[in-house]
């Protein structure tokens, strides 16, 4: 097994296990409370409106939007960690078929690993600092790294020559 394959498989397994543990932790300790907060806030907004309390309605709606912002990103990060990890593991087994030099394959593998780990992390960090430009930039850069690495991989497969 080449170094690039090993990097992808070990990195992918670690990332998948981490993503699952994170998801389990979130499902057990956070998700139910967050969903309750989302549903409760939205209901509260309508109830306050029915009671002709527009300021309370606005505050409840704001609370709903905040909770949903966090929920969407938490679930997205969990699913992207595992999804990207699975792609890395599968590619790890196939990487010998990517027709580049081993050093270039290692660069691709490292890009995939770094991008796949950092992209969901930057998304989760946005739940602590809503709208932070640096985190958005990190998400764009890391996802761009994954896209470039995948494009290089597809190109490597296309360069496949018969034995």
């Amino acid at each position: 097994m080449t170094g690039s394959s090993r990097l992808l498989i070990i990195g992918g397994l670690a990332l998948a296990a981490f993503g699952m543990l994170y998801g389990l932790h979130y499902a057990v300790f956070v998700e139910h409370q967050t969903l309750d907060q989302m549903g409760g806030s939205l209901a509260q907004a309508f109830q306050s409106a029915a009671g002709r309390h527009p300021e309370q309605a606005h505050a409840a709606l704001y609370s709903y939007a905040e909770a949903k912002y966090d929920y969407v990103r938490q679930v997205d990060a969990h699913s992207h960690w595992i999804g990207l990890a699975m792609i890395m593991i599968v590619l790890g087994v196939l990487f010998g078929r990517v027709n580049f030099s081993e050093s270039f394959r290692q660069a691709i593998a490292l890009s995939l690993l770094v991008g796949s780990a950092v992209f969901p992390l930057s998304v989760i960090l946005q739940t602590y600092h809503h709208g932070a430009t640096i985190l958005k930039a990190l998400a764009v850069a890391s996802s761009g790294l994954v896209i470039l690495a995948m494009a290089a991989t597809a190109w490597g497969f296309a360069r496949l020559r018969p034995n």
Binding site: I87, A139, A154, F157
Partner: peptide, 23 residues
């Protein structure tokens, strides 16, 4: 070979669509 190269292209398309939607 068809499944391998087709699969890689589908994943790449999905990544590009996701980046477009997020942005």
């Amino acid at each position: 070979r068809a499944l391998l190269s087709g699969g890689a292209l589908l994943i790449l398309l999905g990544f590009l669509h996701g980046a477009w939607y997020a942005g």
